[in-house]
Design a protein around this nucleic acid. Structure first.
Lengths: 185, 185
DNA sequence: CGCACATTAGGACAACTGTCCTAAAATCTC
DNA sequence: GAGATTTTAGGACAGTTGTCCTAATGTGCG
């Protein structure tokens, strides 16, 4: 793997685990195992790294959703797949929160130029969910339902991160899935 | 107002608007209009300020909930009062997110010693909500309901902060209130 | 008033920040 | 293998960080 990709990968992880502001040029270089001078050859500024990280996350998200669109037979199963993210990533979320939600929050506070790019990741999820609800026969309020599912996962992620209680995430996910099943025809 | 209170108030606001990590000793001193030397007389470390800020938030929260307990006639109206926080603070939330949620998230990422203190603010809300649902006659799952209402407000706050869409918060709050009314006997 | 104490200002300190430069090393092309 | 280009290392730079010290000022009490 090229140096540039290694940098983006390390920065991606550090931004998630420590936050953007906290993560320094030096610590990324140290993680990758290169000198700060070499670092500068690939990225001139910290903002450039952030852009690359957000771009990578955006593409990863699109690729994941594309797999889900193909992999799951019904729209309801696809929505379930999304809701179960918080279960699959429960351990990370307890430690560091939701990668999308915490990044947008931090960039909002920093009034960072790349904030819109971070929000775009939310938008990709939202659009995808809306499509699923449309297919499910709820075109009229598909966007509302998409936002409700997004808000659910953000709320559960935040509280899971705060309280870290065993069984909480799983319980809430099951509850939502039950509610969602009533939407099926 | 004493210098110490002014410092805590300024730090409270700056921590909310810019985040804890971003906010510097110097910027707090500048906001209050005192020298960094004087600052050091009142607080030895940045962590000490954070503790004072969290303590102040905790007391403010308790005081607010106490007023609500007295001010609203029925437990359902009290819960409504809570849910409407996100409407009342919509403008701030669009800019900076929920003060409680974003603070706990940031401190979690920083692995900060005061993280537990920040979570305590969540806990105060949770306990208060649980009491309301108990009074409402749902003692069996009062804590679950409290967590659901908390998660709702966190989810809505995060998405409102991300998308900033007109009418979103109000719409979601009305939807939840309708759902909550079905809990009333 | 005069003295003790609380409060303040201003600056010093090393460590770290993001940024940038230069020269050496590695790699590729012919 | 020679030469050009890409990639690397190491350190310099000014500015900022949290922390700390000292001396001056304010304030209250006898």
């Amino acid at each position: 793997m090229g140096t540039r990709e290694q940098i983006v990968e390390a920065a991606n992880r550090l931004f998630y685990q420590q936050g953007y502001e906290r993560t320094s040029f030096a610590s990324i270089a140290e993680t990758v195992g290169i000198s700060r001078g070499n670092f500068y050859y690939h990225f001139k500024t910290k903002d450039e790294i952030l852009e690359a990280v957000l771009e990578a996350r955006l593409q990863d998200t699109r690729a994941m959703l594309a797999r889900w669109t193909e992999g799951a037979a019904t729209p309801l199963k696809r929505v379930f797949r999304f809701v179960e993210i918080v279960v699959a990533n429960r351990a990370d979320i307890e430690h560091y929160g939701c990668p999308v939600g915490t990044m947008t929050s931090e960039l909002a506070k920093l009034d960072h130029p790349s904030r819109a790019q971070a929000v775009d990741i939310f938008r990709v999820f939202r659009d995808w969910l809306r499509e699923q609800f449309t297919e499910l026969g709820h075109a009229a309020n598909a966007d509302d339902l998409a936002l409700q599912v997004l808000a659910f996962s953000q709320g559960v992620a935040t509280l899971s991160n705060a309280f870290g209680e065993r069984g909480y995430v799983k319980r809430e996910v099951e509850r939502l899935k039950t509610r969602l099943m009533s939407l099926d025809t």
